[in-house]
Design a protein around this nucleic acid. Sequence first.
DNA 1: AAAACTTTGTTTAACCAATATACAAAGTCT
DNA 2: AGACTTTGTATATTGGTTAAACAAAGTTTT
Lengths: 386, 386
Amino acid sequence: MKVTGDQALVKKINKSIVLHMIRKHSPLSRARVSEMTGLNKATVSNLVAELCQQELVIEAGPGESSGGRKPLILHFNAMAGSVIGIELRVKQLTAVLCDLGGNVLGERDYTLNHHDLPYVLEEIHKIISELMAAAPVTPYGIVGIGVGVPGMVDENGVVLFAPNLGWEMVNLRGLLESSFSVPVTIDNEANAGAQGELNFGAARDVRHLLYVSAGSGIGSGIIIGGELYKGARGYAGETGHMSIEADGKLCSCGSRGCWELYASEKTYDHADIDLPARTTPELVRYASQGQEDALRHFAKVGEYLGIGITNLINSFNPEVIVIGGALSEAEEWLGEPLRKVVAERTLPYHKQQLEITFSKLGSRGTVIGAGFSAVMHFLGNIRVTL
Amino acid sequence: MKVTGDQALVKKINKSIVLHMIRKHSPLSRARVSEMTGLNKATVSNLVAELCQQELVIEAGPGESSGGRKPLILHFNAMAGSVIGIELRVKQLTAVLCDLGGNVLGERDYTLNHHDLPYVLEEIHKIISELMAAAPVTPYGIVGIGVGVPGMVDENGVVLFAPNLGWEMVNLRGLLESSFSVPVTIDNEANAGAQGELNFGAARDVRHLLYVSAGSGIGSGIIIGGELYKGARGYAGETGHMSIEADGKLCSCGSRGCWELYASEKTYDHADIDLPARTTPELVRYASQGQEDALRHFAKVGEYLGIGITNLINSFNPEVIVIGGALSEAEEWLGEPLRKVVAERTLPYHKQQLEITFSKLGSRGTVIGAGFSAVMHFLGNIRVTL
DNA sequence: AAAACTTTGTTTAACCAATATACAAAGTCT
DNA sequence: AGACTTTGTATATTGGTTAAACAAAGTTTT
């Protein structure tokens, strides 16, 4: 959004800078904040005083002196409020209660039997209510709910299309906000996962991150310059339907040779391949026992993951690639073929500073990331671009 | 870049808002600017006074009254300075002299015999010097030089890799700036083209644009929210090396099945196809005479263009797609197969508001866009994001 | 044609946030 | 004990936006 400038804006900008500096780098003294931000000491003092009054920052007594007066240590008050992060999956509904620092305070897990909107909504209501009841008493209480959804989401929190749920044009944010009277953020599942790994997982403070969520389909979360890149209308990263075989298998989307037909759990559905099981956890068990078919299949999936990832590298050139989603459990067998294909297919230039890792937060990355979206919505984040 | 806020910043922001409002929507009165920006009338008056003194805005006498005092009409002063836009192609060097409004004041065209850096630099020097000599006398003179290059460019104007020129790590900006003592902007050729079409061509003021430049290779310029999306380090859009056939033809980049092997002028290089000629202009001539091989080949290229474009639609979902580059001359024969493939392969959801057109500026889109980059660099464009 | 109303643009005073500077407080080092 | 350092606060200044009043120059109504 484009805004005009006045003094209130200046204050907002600087307060936001100070708050997030403390949030990310605490413990910190006022003097250090002044140095790091470039803001005047007096300005920092004023803003910190306000943040303390708002209970977003707390003073934790004196720290170590380095040859002068002892600094007063400031902390971000992660317990000023809490958020609920939710991940909606095909067969499962997971939710966590987090503080503002992303620390998990409580967790719930439901099984979903089908995807009728009223039923799913009821389950979401239940899981939220339970966690709300379990929330600690804090100055701000529950400050937001963040939901990660397997599908395209627009900037208004409307689920435009979620093929695996059979949803179309569901105003999820509206529905939940009117029920709970709390700000709700809806994110694509891959975007939520990317935020989780960026802030609390395998890719902390990386500037340019590509998070590939491989599960029942494939979606990507793209972080550019430390910020989530949502694209035109909030749904960049629908990479599962990138065609990697122009005349390949027919996909439900109408196209042919879509990436996710070759590199996701969708590969299990073909009747013509030999597999000892048709779910990732089971296949992982077989693979760890050395079962040939499972090993071969994971190797193949790894290669195809590498082909799609190469395409994305050519478009986005990230510093780090994190692979998440259900298939990340098979890291042991996917990793090598994947890296090999990427090494073969990318320009030498790309190889220099490219790290490919698997999710560190595992299945919790998405819920935590979804919750973090709600945290950021509560705290705000205003920036100036030259 | 992240900056802290103070009053100087506020002024910069507001002045930038006022300037670009007048640039885009003149003629305009101070009162209208105040309404449209939300800034106070006094603020607008002050800023306009400064802009007039800087000769970036000129007062053009009274306009029509609508029941009160006549407004004083303001114009953006496109003749406050001029820029040089350059396009570097494999066999050609094109340059234009533009005013700040993108109006072409002069034009030059050189043929390039090879791509040795010293030689090309010398030719660039010559073409710039000629146009500089032809520049009209303006308050600011030549305020910048913008160059469009067929390759990856980083944020410092270094050409990282330009396969068709055989260049690697060429600090083009540094070289030109030290010669001419004028700010130089270096852009990928597709990004320059996208800017040209966005501001002066087929996609004026579109919010989300995908510009596909199909010539000796393929590159894409991506406009998100009205602004060029440069990606992580300035080279998003290297889409020519997106693999659309996992086990397809071997590409010079090391990968297989790269899009540009199937949908650019590179297709002419295969000895095993029957073609009456091996350059686009010649093939266009044959096609217009109904030559079978030429027609068949363009149809095939159109289909493959459609396949890659579908992949990009799935990732970026633009409102408008503009196809530029040398191959856009073959619009007549590419258009139908391309649109057909896209219609078949995209989700129904995408088809609603998607327009596919060919470049309106033709070969001049890129030079004009490159020049426009220099204009924007001169005028500045500061924004606040919430 | 005079009076009333409208619209445009400027002037004035008030406000407010950041800043430089001085200063107070609380430590370390010699 | 005295000199120096570092932290954090108080004070006066600066400079930009703003609301409100005002001046200027129209049109519309009576």
